[in-house]
């Protein structure tokens, strides 16, 4: 619990200079007043979510504040429903989609992506004392995933592995939290889960309890979504992102939110 509070406090400090306009109205054109409205889903820990005081915090929030601040913009965060993100962008309600936004070919037709800034693997997590060490060891074991998640799809895509599991497929839970708890209770032997989410949960619950296998079920990448028309803005963000990766700022922000 103390850890959690400390985490929130550090996030608060990072945010202390930023007005958090979560319910701000539709934006004025960014070029004039230098405000950039970022569409976020505030239910998506650890990329963007709310701390105990109701402030918007998270890895993407810190990253956006830092990056846009360096470019001389003011970042404003607008909560949106994730299913409407591209429509909100097109309508001009928001200027960027930046919240664990996975790069896919279908999305590339609607928006421009920056360079990928984070890998999101479908990783395999077991309890620290488990004798499972590789994918092959999962044969006959019970594997937990979140219902209708990309983790489920990733496991099923590898048909031979899926068929080797107890029950011939992973056991599905409503939330990743449920799936994690089932592993902790010993009913499931392993969980396949988004790395980004998993690292955050593991950090919250105590890193020493868990083991992350070296093998995974494939990966995807996060990028920042920019309106097709805003090509100059895209280049600006891309260049600054590279700069932040090179000077170590990126790694520092990442360290605040993710377990190794």
């Amino acid at each position: 619990m103390k850890k959690l509070t400390a985490l929130f406090l550090s996030a608060l400090m990072a945010l202390s200079l930023t007005a958090c306009g979560s319910s701000a109205p539709a934006p004025a054109p960014e070029a004039e007043d230098k405000t950039v409205v970022i569409g976020v889903d505030d239910t998506f820990a650890p990329m963007g979510f709310r701390d105990e005081a109701g402030n918007l915090v998270g890895f993407d929030i810190d990253l956006a504040n830092e990056l846009l601040g360096r470019l001389g913009y003011e970042a404003k965060f607008q909560v949106i429903d994730w299913s409407m993100k591209e429509t909100e962008l097109e309508n001009g309600n928001i200027d960027l989609i930046w919240n664990g936004y996975t790069i896919t070919d279908a999305r590339k037709e609607k928006v421009n992506f920056t360079q990928p800034y984070l890998d999101n693997k479908q990783i395999i997590v077991t309890m620290a004392d488990s004798d499972i060490a590789a994918k092959a060891d999962l044969a006959g074991k019970t594997v937990a995933v979140q219902k209708e998640s990309s983790a489920y799809d990733a496991v099923m895509a590898q048909a031979d592995v899926a068929a080797s599991l107890a029950g011939g497929e992973p056991v599905q839970f409503d939330t990743n939290t449920d799936a994690f708890m089932d592993v902790e209770a010993g009913r499931s032997d392993a969980i396949v889960v988004d790395e980004v989410l998993a690292r955050y949960y593991i950090k919250l619950r105590g890193e020493e309890q868990y083991k992350v296998l070296a093998e995974d079920f494939g990966s995807e990448e996060y990028g920042i979504g920019v309106r097709k028309a805003d090509t100059e803005f895209l280049a600006e963000i891309d260049a600054e992102l590279t700069e932040m990766i090179n000077d170590g700022t990126f790694a520092e922000i990442k360290g605040r939110w993710f377990a190794e």
Binding site: S23, A45, R50, D81, S83, T175, T177, R205
Partner: peptide, 21 residues
């Protein structure tokens, strides 16, 4: 759908960030 923070959304936010039901 409008991104407004009603009671249910608050529940969703903290269920996710606390990893608890």
């Amino acid at each position: 759908i409008l991104g407004l923070g009603d009671l249910l959304r608050q529940g969703k936010i903290y269920a996710n960030s606390l990893s608890s039901l």
